[in-house]
Simulated scan of single mutants.
Amino acid sequence: MTHTPESLSSSGRHSGDQGDTKRRRRVPGRVRALLAGGLVLGVGATVTLAAWNDSEFATASFQAGTFNLQGSADGTTFADHASAPGSSLGFSVNASTLSPGDVVYAPYAVRLAANTTSPATVTITAPGTTGTVTGLSYSLIQPTAFGCSSATTGTTLVPAATAVGSVPGSVTFQLAPGTPTTAAGAAVNLCFVVTAGAGLTQSQTGSATWQFQAVSH
């Protein structure tokens, strides 16, 4: 049979199309899988993961408070008397010319100084003595107001007839800081009552120094 050019042309196109189809069909499944996987990876590469994080900080500063005890012999002018002999007590009569039966009185006051941040317990320790204090006894009163005389009343801290140079047991009182702390605390007033007994000897000389020891709490 003789084929016309048209038939050849037609047959050629069909043959080429069939060849391309066969070649496409012959692409191995593994290659197609790789191509498909490549598409998946391409899509995955465009995803950006957001990073979530947060922080909290806390800082504390520490500073120690201040603590200072002051005393006054006149109830007005307060100062530090941190070592013996300290402030001189202002007795109502001349304590250097005592006779048996004489009673002398001396006021005193203590307080916490300005900027003191803690309350305190004050302990009165046994007075240190020099010279001779034989025949002398005392009492210590805590009145509500500053002053000291035979008419003074208040809380008895040291009972009458206590020998000068001793303190019976533990004698304490409380002090509060000022409010605000830039102010001094309220003063605690004290009254020393010293009595000369029959055992006093002529021309004897002596002194006693009481200590007020404040401890913060």
Rank of each mutant, 00 (worst) to 15 (best):
T77C: 08
K22E: 07
Q63M: 06
T76R: 09
T21G: 04
G38N: 06
R23K: 15
L34W: 10
A64T: 12
R23W: 11
G71V: 05
L41W: 00
W52T: 09
L34T: 05
R25D: 08
V27M: 10
L34C: 13
F57S: 14
D54E: 14
F67W: 05
A58P: 01
P28C: 01
A50T: 09
G19H: 12
T48G: 08
D17G: 11
R32L: 15
Q18G: 09
A36V: 03
Q18L: 13
D20N: 03
H14Y: 06
S72P: 01
A36C: 05
G38A: 15
A33C: 09
G44R: 02
V31S: 11
L41N: 00
D54P: 00
G16Q: 11
V47R: 02
Q70D: 08
T76L: 12
V27I: 15
T76S: 15
T48L: 11
H14T: 13
R26Y: 05
V31I: 12
E56V: 10
D17H: 12
H14E: 14
N53S: 15
G75I: 14
L41K: 06
A33Y: 05
T46Q: 10
T21A: 15
G38Q: 02
S72G: 08
V40Q: 06
D54M: 07
A36E: 03
G65P: 02
R30D: 07
G71D: 04
A64Q: 13
V43P: 02
A45H: 01
A58G: 01
L41S: 05
Q18E: 13
L39N: 00
F57E: 04
G29C: 04
T66Y: 03
P28L: 10
V31M: 05
S11M: 10
R13Q: 12
G38E: 01
